[in-house]
Design a protein around this nucleic acid. Structure first.
Lengths: 285, 285
DNA sequence: ACTCATTATGTAGTAAATTTACAAATATTC
DNA sequence: GAATATTTGTAAATTTACTACATAATGAGT
């Protein structure tokens, strides 16, 4: 079953080539698609002003095995279309609306990112991280928090990991890098000067440069390997809210990739790290 | 029509509270969701090993008017592309499967959190933050990165914001707190001793204590206001991956709430902050 | 313009699927 | 262990969808 991404568009396109009664059915469906998914064949036939078998024939014409199957395809098609709409928070919003909007935006961002994941770039980045002698995560502003998060994740792999928010430290570390060092730059825009400059400095050494940033940005240009994250429109007026979520999940993906690379024998090591925290917590009652 | 964004997650979550036969139906659906959307009630009943009316009752229990309506909702929910409920990464996974799994898990976590958002607690927290004289964000480990992110967000509101990862600093600052100070504790488990102790110390002052943590935890007990985040099962064996995403989005929600509270006249101030970064970036070509 | 062939549409009956009402079985409480 | 409540299944009723066939409409050729 080749589930058509947009059934309504297909119907619309074929409107001319349909018989009179089939066209009536098409029109009825186009007028109220959601309702059509909930109707019985009888009520849809009535709404279109045709007989039930006409509706049935219509369905088969569009590749369905029958009316129920057609409804299913229609519902599927409608569901995937509605999804990707980001809604900005407005001053007229209240506690019942804006939290949902923000969550929806976050979910949408992740779904979009998931569909266009640069898998090859991710795979290559995993390779590089797995064999690095040292890893530096550099970011500024919001991305500094992401870098910090990455640090907490990657130190588990027995690779020394460093993070610095100080641009001067970043420059100096970049300058003193050598073979086996990996610099991982994180930036939403990929245009932050001091960060790009640090990348340029690192580029002149033997170190490997990986970045998680916008495609075609100056930072991407400086990188040996770049994981592109689509820069979305500025729905959220004043803060990059969703992009850092995507960055975090991609870093999770990288960490998982390295774990898989290390193999099953590595699990006890991770378990030991986890256990080490046991005594810092109040026991569960 | 309350079209459920992720019906499978809802089913999964309620598995325990179902009767024997309803649980069988649930299992059958979770095993092969897309097949279920194409089955008749009879074949699904057979697959689950129960009678047809049991399937029907199951559907109604989940808000559908009947079996066809349920299939529709299920198809709609599946169409979003977020497949299974929570899938752990396994060593047999490769680059084509584990990134998707991690994204799906993240998306699911946000969807679940969205459904059970503690709106009243959020509203109260917004109130408190909006009128605080000073705000401290305290977290440790992964939550330290979240706290850092919060700092980047909330300083924009003309309220002094502080973050410290050092437990000793946290204690000392807690001890020296006074009226108008707000301590915002972030913790996945709510059981980290040094953090809870800092909260206890702060509690003895005039300061307000807000936490973003697990319900019923020691940290929650120390808080005047607690935003509960459901602690999910430990699918991710060794790292809390999804919970921090939820924490971040909830902090976005709080920030948005404070922005709305400040009113429209506050927008220029935010714009000025944004503009201040302009010269740090390479211009867009 | 008329007939024949072709296509389109509807009618009616049939089969299938879903739901309801009720009865049997199982679990729960006192 | 009896009484009650809950769960589950059986069987009938109802709704829904499909098939076969008949009628109507359309178009081509004479």
């Amino acid at each position: 079953m080749t589930s058509e991404p947009n059934l309504l568009a297909v119907i619309q396109r074929q409107l001319n080539e349909l018989n009179k009664s089939e066209a009536k059915v098409a029109q009825a469906i186009l007028n109220a698609p959601e309702e059509a998914t909930r109707s019985s064949i009888a009520s849809l036939a009535a709404a279109a002003g045709v007989s039930e078998p006409s509706v049935n024939r219509f369905c088969k014409r569009f590749g369905a095995t029958g009316f129920p199957d057609f409804k299913l395809q229609l519902a599927t098609s409608l569901a995937s279309g509605v999804r990707y709409v980001s809604r900005a928070v407005e001053f007229s919003d209240d506690i019942n609306t804006f939290p949902t909007k923000l969550f929806d935006n976050a979910i949408n961002a992740l779904m979009t990112a998931k569909e266009e994941l640069p898998l090859k770039a991710i795979a290559r980045a995993v390779d590089q991280i797995a064999q690095a002698r040292r890893v530096y995560f550099f970011g500024l502003g919001t991305s500094a928090a992401v870098a910090r998060d990455a640090e907490h994740k990657f130190f588990r792999f027995n690779v020394p990991v460093f993070t610095h928010e100080d641009p001067l430290m970043q420059r100096m570390l970049a300058a003193s890098a050598g073979v086996g060092d990996l610099f991982f730059f994180i930036s939403h825009t990929g245009r932050t000067k001091v960060l790009v400059e640090a990348a340029e400095i690192a580029r002149q050494t033997e170190a490997t440069i990986v970045s998680l940033t916008a495609e075609g940005s100056p930072l991407a240009d400086q990188s040996h390997y770049c994981i592109n994250v689509k820069i979305e429109e500025d729905t959220e007026q004043y803060l990059p809210m969703t992009s850092r979520l995507v960055q975090l999940v991609i870093l999770d993906v990288l960490a998982a990739g390295v774990t898989l690379r290390r193999g099953e024998g590595f699990t006890p090591h991770l378990a030991r790290i986890k256990d080490s925290l046991k005594d810092t917590r109040f026991p569960t009652s």
